[in-house]
Write a protein that binds this DNA or RNA. Structure first.
Length: 951
RNA sequence: ACGACCGUAGCUCAGUUGGUUAGAGCACUACCUUGACAUGGUAGGGGUCGGUGGUUCGAAUCCACUCGGUCGUACCA
């Protein structure tokens, strides 16, 4: 074996081997276990979130696969409507072509071409993480099967009265010309203004103060063209007499009423609010309460219309209201119009004042432009009826969240769920299966032929399919079952649905998790006709943040690419990567500076296993994690330790009889029995931790066992036997057998977390272990065997450790070279101590570099020594020529001081009758024992100090 | 403003139902190239567990208040 661990040399080739040999396919026993991957965006690139959730999912998948379950990790990607369309549009734009030049059909061909060429990026990257996904069943939300599922779902929901079309306010992106969802809107703090406008009262009315106008405050003066009322608080005495009177809307000349609504805050501004139901979500609600019209004054690009469009609150067309708008603003962009309108109001003496005002501005995350609440015809899913069973499924525990507190988040959202706008004005996506006749009547069906036959429409009726596509989340909502072949009742659907585990971030509980639950429960039934859930457990993980706790983002330039941690990256390349393609190029200098400061030498290559171990170690309670590169390095070093421990084991077992043929005739030493016992405990803890989704505790248990027990102690304890010419063949065989078999079991135990190094080592040691099988991936998962627990061996080893540590402490603090062989005395021990000495003399001499050990009778004179205590047993290192008296006294004094403090605390407790009366007897007994031990130790140490004082 | 979560060593994090001297990794100090490993070993230093008050024989752990941080919803014209 190479002298150091080199992940680059092993990881990719093992992955290729696994995939080629079909190990990722379901192939276990009767018990099915499945996870559906949250479909990554096909335009996407790997980020730390993927790294994190794949580490978790793959750990669970590999664990269950090794447990013998029929295990499916379903792979697939989603088509990411807007993102993909924009990528291809950008490409076309470089050639000077717009999608409209091409037309819909041709454009979609281009998108598919792009997908074939570039859509595999993310899937290649996921392979680098070691994820054991079933690639043979990979799906894509736009493939034929999933598209059929989408149509089927749409039609069924429509037939069940749960999908409808309506005119509503939506988040409209005036650049991309589509509705977008709330998650695609980012609210930024920006500086703006509050314009105070004077709205003249009609019919000579005056305010209580005698003014002929009301002052309304607004951040969006241009929307005043669409005002339908001014609202005041019903209890506001200042305006009580004006309620029901009218305003003459400036510039427009339309009359609008003054209404009372308790939405208005009396204290804010002037207490008068202009109401524009067609351009503001809050105003829309006010408008609904007062039966106002919706007056839309903006076109799809957010420019002012030549004439307003007026609708009744139910969305129907209204031809009663005058649609005249001032001609001067027609065609002006909203911000140009804003300037002009303010200027015109000022000229008319209607501008009261302008204040600075900080506000949240909603911007489209793709386009960066300010989102406009805009009135459009859209398709909606009626969510209330779907939410009810979905809430119940979680209440009843059919679905549970880990950690549990996320259930509250789920409930609170589901309780006031809004109808879901599912249409998008894009070309790339699932086209809505609805057709219109020339009169505008809509028919829904799986295809045009079905629509015609269902509604008896012959060829003479011209049908036109809806131009819009469905929200990408609509197809994602079907993910757990559409990927398994629904609406066909496939074997896979029967076997693997409901899935077992969903691993996802809390930020999409609403947008994805909740919708999956609703869609699945409505559409998928079991044999008994009962609603099926999509998954039993939702594991919610936190966000991966940078080392400062900042959210990682391209614009902050603090993004880490998991592949750069795996492969390493030099500083210049990293700087370049972080500073290209920025939304604001002027940030480049700052980002460069901060990158050079944080990674002066770039990033080392740590390998996938170290990265995965880091994610697992941080995966505790669903909280955000600050990514710490130091930890990756630590785990890389840990892998190196595994590598080198293996070299030691191989060095001592290759070509030897390790009982690989199960011939027996071996003898287990104390150390062998102890490490085997300890292994059972590690297996127990590790498995329990996995079952509870505490990968951090599993990681900890593994490290603790492998490094602190197996490497630090067991390997050392094996040396005195293996290197002892007098040791018997049976003893050596027993030790070799234990060395190799414990290592082998440990590899299987840890394989779900660190697949590559465990496979590499397993293959190398396999012939010596008697293990069979072609891969550790499909080897049996270790299960703790309580019959192998050996408390007696553990107690003996604890004694041995205590003695050795006592000697090492003396050496360390007294500056005795570790290699110097020293004599040792023991005194005042009991029979057990004496037995232990006799049994373990050889271990002690070898591990503590002792030249001789002498057991002193209680009454015999001991040489002046440095002392360590193991229980009552005194470990004496003679000082002659080795130890400075003053130093030893200082050391003992420190120890006495510590014990004295402890004594005081413990004695105090025991003297307190409240404690002795009320505390459980075993706790009291424990304290008593402790006090005795402290007393004994103090007596011994003080005697020693006396002795030293007399020198 | 409301709700959730968090605050433990210089840094990143554990700490199960209250019960020895509050742990790990990284960083730090000293010593050590010894026949698996310097991507290492051994020993060591470092914490009044954000603060205050309470419950309790006993609180990092439970309760109340408070300060600070993160996130979500509402932050409104």
């Amino acid at each position: 074996m190479e002298k150091t661990y080199q992940p680059q040399a092993i990881e990719q080739s093992w992955y290729n081997t696994w995939e080629e040999r079909g190990y990722f396919k379901p192939q276990g026993g009767d018990n099915a276990y499945s996870i559906m991957i949250p479909p990554p965006n096909v335009t996407g690139n790997l980020h730390m979130g993927h790294g994190f959730n794949n580490a978790v999912m793959d750990a669970m998948i590999r664990y269950h696969r090794m447990r013998g379950d029929d295990t499916l990790w379903q792979m697939g990607t989603d088509h990411a409507g807007i993102a993909t369309q924009m990528v291809v549009e950008r490409q076309l734009a470089a050639e000077g072509i717009s999608r409209h030049d091409l037309g819909r059909e041709k454009f979609l061909e281009k998108v598919w071409q792009w997908k074939e060429q570039s859509g595999g990026n993310i899937t290649r990257q996921l392979r680098r993480l070691g994820s054991s996904l079933d690639w043979s069943r990979e799906r894509f939300t736009m493939d034929d099967g999933l598209s059929d599922a989408v149509k089927e779902a749409f039609v069924r929901l429509h037939d069940d009265g749960l999908i409808y079309r309506g005119k509503r306010l939506v988040n409209w992106d005036p650049k991309l010309h589509t509705a977008i969802s709330d998650v695609e809107v980012e609210n930024h703090d920006e500086k703006g203004f509050m314009w105070h406008l004077r709205y003249p009262l009609a019919d000579g009315a005056t305010t209580a103060e005698g003014k002929t106008y009301l002052v309304v405050a607004t951040t969006r003066p241009e929307t005043m063209l669409g005002d339908t009322a001014v609202a005041v608080h019903p209890d506001d005495e200042r305006y009580a007499s004006l309620i029901g009177k009218e305003i003459e809307l400036p510039l427009v000349g339309r009359r609008i009423p003054i209404v009372a609504d308790d939405y208005v805050e009396r204290e804010f501004g002037t207490g008068c609010v202009k109401i524009t139901p067609a351009h503001d979500f809050n105003d829309y609600e006010v408008g609904k309460r007062h039966g106002m019209n919706l007056i839309n004054v903006l076109d799809k690009s957010a420019a002012i219309l030549a004439a307003a469009q007026v609708f009744n609150i139910d969305g129907s067309h209204n031809d009663q209201v005058d649609t005249t708008l001032p001609a001067a603003y027609a065609g002006m962009d909203r911000y140009v119009a804003r300037k002009q309108i303010v200027a015109d109001l000022e000229a008319a003496g209607l501008l009261d004042k302008i204040d600075d005002h900080a506000l949240k501005v909603p911007r489209g995350d793709r386009s960066g432009v300010v989102i406009e609440p805009w009135l459009t015809d859209q398709w909606y899913v009626s969510t209330k009826p779907l939410a009810e069973p979905a809430i119940k499924a979680v209440e009843d525990g059919d679905i549970s969240f880990v950690p549990k507190q996320y259930e509250n988040m789920y409930f609170s959202w589901m309780r006031d769920i809004q109808d879901w706008c599912i249409s998008r004005q894009l070309w790339w996506g699932h086209r809505i299966p609805a057709w219109y006749d020339e009169a505008g009547k809509v028919y829904v069906g799986r295809n045009e032929a079905e629509v015609r036959s269902k509604h008896q429409l012959d060829e003479s009726v011209v049908l036109q399919q809806d131009n819009d596509v469905l929200d990408t989340w609509f197809s994602s909502g079907l993910w757990t079952f559409s990927t398994l072949g629904w609406p066909e009742q496939t074997e896979f659907l029967k076997k693997f649905h409901p899935s077992d585990l969903l691993v996802t971030g809390f930020d999409i509980i609403f947008f994805w998790v909740a919708r999956m639950i609703m869609m699945t429960m409505h559409l998928v039934k079991d044999e008994n006709g009962n609603a099926q859930i999509p998954f039993k457990t939702v594991y919610v993980h936190g966000l991966v943040r940078d080392s400062q706790g900042q959210k990682m983002s391209k614009s902050k330039g603090n993004v880490l690419d998991p592949l750069d941690i795996i492969d390493g990256i030099d500083l210049e390349t990293l700087v370049q990567k972080r500073t290209t393609g920025l939304m604001r190029p002027k940030d480049a200098a700052k980002i460069e500076k901060q990158t050079r400061k944080e990674f002066p030498d770039g990033i080392e290559s740590f390998g996938t296993d170290a990265l995965r171990l880091t994610f697992c170690s941080l995966a505790s309670t669903g909280r955000d994690i600050k990514f710490d590169m130091g930890r990756v390095e630590g785990y890389r070093n840990f892998c190196n330790k595994m590598w080198n421990a293996t070299r030691y084991v191989l060095m001592n077992t290759e070509g030897e009889d390790c009982d690989q043929d199960d011939s027996g005739n071996y003898e287990l030493s104390l150390a062998d029995r102890w490490i085997i016992s300890r292994l059972q405990q590690a297996e127990q803890t590790f498995t329990e931790s996995l079952e509870n989704y505490r990968l951090d505790l599993a990681t900890q248990a593994f490290n603790e066992f492998f490094k602190n027990e197996y490497c630090d102690w067991y390997l050392e304890l094996s040396k005195p036997i293996l290197w002892d010419d007098n040791a018997s063949t049976a003893q050596k065989k027993g030790t070799r057998r234990t060395l190799i078999r414990v290592l082998e079991a440990t590899l299987r135990l840890a394989h779900p977390l660190i697949p590559f190094i465990t496979e590499e080592i397993w293959q190398r040691i396999k012939p010596l272990t008697g293990a069979t099988g072609d891969t550790i991936m499909l080897a049996t998962y270790p299960i703790a065997d309580s019959s192998k627990l050996d408390p007696a061996a553990s107690a003996d080893i604890e004694w041995l450790k205590g003695v050795i540590e006592g000697i090492r402490t003396i050496r360390g603090e007294m500056n005795i070279a570790p290699g110097k062989h020293i004599p040792l005395f023991m005194q005042h021990g009991n029979d057990n101590d004496q037995r232990l000495l006799n049994d373990n003399r050889q271990y002690l001499q070898k591990l503590a570099n002792i030249e001789s050990i002498e057991w002193l009778e209680p009454d015999s004179e001991a040489p002046t020594s440095a002392t360590a205590l193991v229980g009552k047993l005194e470990i004496l290192v003679p000082m002659a020529g080795l130890i400075d008296v003053a130093a030893e006294r200082a050391r003992l004094n420190k120890e006495v001081e510590r014990l004295a403090k402890d004594h005081e605390r413990t004695a105090g407790k025991l003297q307190n009758p409240k404690f002795t009366d009320k505390a459980p007897a075993e706790v009291v007994a424990k304290e008593q024992q402790k006090l005795e031990d402290i007393n004994a130790a103090l007596v011994t140490l003080r005697e020693q100090l006396e002795t030293l004082a007399q020198l």
